[in-house]
Design a protein around this nucleic acid. Structure first.
Lengths: 366, 366
DNA sequence: TTGTAGGCGTTATCAC
DNA sequence: GTGATAACGCCTACAA
């Protein structure tokens, strides 16, 4: 009761955590012995080992990673540097990366540079100062970016869902061309022969690759992709809506549309339906991204290409682990896309599918 | 040329980074002097200070944060623990948090527990071992969750977009009731008197709060919210579509619908339009979330409540900073929502709006 | 079988 | 003004 004299005003600045010394003192041994006991090193009497172990968790001892890292020269941390966390692509990528790394007892620093070069530089410096074991760089789009400069360190850097021109860098990307081929072949296998493409701006590498992939698949079937069936515009639902109207007005033979994104596909589908076109009977539609909230909400539900970004992230994590272990094999790795078949192309086909519906991306919660 | 003898096969296991010793040797002083020179401590001749500084960045010296942290007992890192990174709500929250923390030179560990208790426990242990300065816990929904146990440490823990029953915990949440009031008052100010609500499952606290908020606003205008105008179902676009049909069939007086999410609102709007109802002339619609990709794609574009999660994250970051500095003020803080006015309620109103359109959430890129 | 001591890279407190 | 030295918490040879 009353005022407690001499109570420090400032909170104890130092965390009063229990250290190996406390354990040693409590167990009546020296710190060396404690270390050996807890790490299963050296030859200790099983009795002592057990006694020490007991006092350790009685005291709630937790070895200080900072000290260990300093000693080992490895921090068991990795930096994840993203230019901009738009979300749609970053999230599955991030969780994939983090999945494999956390299995390796590695914690991930999340660094969002907001497309700001100076900010990115500061992040890299911080990561280097914290002696991360590696850095994964990612982005909102797959196009090339400048390499990250880690100075005179030999910290491994890996690029995921983005790439770098440096020949000694490792970049991991989805195989856009293959994804487009998959979609096109699916449409062809459903008897479609007059297929248009509605996609994003030409200056995206992914747009070009998907166009090439589609063209390639058509050519293999003796078909071509005429200019008037290629409509490029912004990555927006409204563009899909508009493009579909244009196609309906100009191309009476059209029997399928391959869209560069699910957003565009949604606009396309809405426009078609409103103009009385039956989907897929009259015109079939394929999307790209397998963005659950969109692909499952279109009427009919959207058949679409999945870039498997979660798996891509997992793979990136494992490759970084390998690099940390010393194995550096630079290059550009493109991982296959798969096709998720729903109802916008007709009856379910079992062909041309590498995988069927993937782990539900739609959490039925807010 | 030819084989180089004695070249080590194993890559130097230890990062050959330049340390303060190297700088000291190169500059012909001792490490103490280097430390003082670089940190602006002590009384050094300006000449030596400059010379040391020069050799330091000639050598590319970078102080090792691990060593500093060990000494200071602070790591300048924070853990961000999320039960599940669905994305929609986590992303703005995360970037907000990270924004303020990175300004304080703090790096953020991203930990996605996948709704797995054991995994969460492992993460917490890792974070404690790494001596993070604090932990922010977040979730996919705002309902209460068990407190995080940090053992005998006094590491501050803060809950953002989730809450905890413990009286000494700090939880930061959006003010759902106020958001609902905002939306309702907006509709009332446009002359609407027969307003229904279509929302998510009742067991969500947010659903209940939004209902209360709406009822409160109606009551203040002498109106009530009859049971038949409350439709609760899954958080899905299809539910909105279905609910709108039900309302049209049963409630001829209806002139507005307040939706618990933008996804639901989109379903509602599509159903109304397809049934020939004019929006907003016949029925006005308000959403909740301001999810750009949806709210901007509805026709007409959706007026909706924004929970300002980025700002909420920023605020959470600043509160954690305060806690780290020793100021702990537990409680539940609810931050105001704002209304983003588009076209689904009629002509733009300047009243009843705390803020207008916020920083564009729609990046026009894939 | 256990204790001792050096060192990981810093910073801070003393001497000189 | 600058140099030594003791921490910070841990691990690991090596000594006893």
């Amino acid at each position: 009761m009353g005022s407690q004299p001499d109570e420090p005003i400032i909170a104890t600045k130092r965390q009063q955590v229990v250290t190996i010394h406390d354990v040693a003192r409590a167990a009546g041994v020296t710190i060396g012995t404690v270390s050996k006991a807890l790490n299963g090193q050296g030859n200790l009497r099983e009795e002592t080992r057990e006694r020490i172990r007991a006092t350790a968790d009685r005291l709630g001892f937790r070895p200080n990673d900072l000290a260990q890292s300093l000693l080992r020269g490895r921090s068991f941390t990795v930096g994840l540097l993203t230019t901009d966390s738009y979300g749609r692509f970053s999230i599955p990528l991030m969780t994939g990366i983090e999945d494999t790394l956390s299995d390796a007892q590695i914690l991930v620093f999340f660094c969002d540079a907001h497309d700001d070069v100076a900010r990115e530089r500061r992040y890299i410096d911080s990561l280097l100062a914290k002696h991360v074991d590696g850095i994964i760089v990612t982005a909102r789009r797959t196009d090339a970016r400048p390499a990250v400069n880690v100075g005179n360190t030999n910290i491994p850097v890996l690029y995921a869902y983005t790439q770098v021109v440096e020949p000694d860098a490792l970049s991991i990307l989805p195989d856009d061309a293959q994804g487009a081929r998959l979609a096109t072949e699916h449409l062809l296998s459903h008897g479609r022969r007059h297929i248009a493409q509605v996609s994003g701006p030409q200056y995206f590498e992914s747009v070009q690759l998907r166009m090439e992939g589609m063209r390639h698949a058509l050519n293999e079937h003796g078909l071509d992709l005429p200019e008037h069936r290629i409509l490029l515009g912004p990555w927006r639902e409204a563009w899909g809506y508009q493009a579909a109207s244009i196609l309906l007005d100009t191309d009476s033979q059209l029997d399928a549309i391959f869209c560069g994104s699910d957003q565009i596909a949604r606009g396309v589908i809405d426009a078609l339906r409103e103009r009385g076109v039956r989907i897929p009977d009259d015109i079939a539609v394929v999307g790209f991204d397998n963005w659950g909230v969109i692909a499952q909400a279109t009427r009919p539900a959207l058949t679409t290409v999945d870039m498997n970004l979660h798996e891509l992230g997992q793979y990136a994590g494992s490759r970084l682990l390998a690099m940390i272990a010393g194995k550096k094999e630079p290059g550009i790795v493109r991982l296959p896309c798969s096709l998720v078949i729903r109802d916008s192309c007709g009856v379910h086909s079992v062909r041309n599918t590498e995988e069927t519906e993937r782990r539900g991306e739609n959490k039925d919660e807010e």
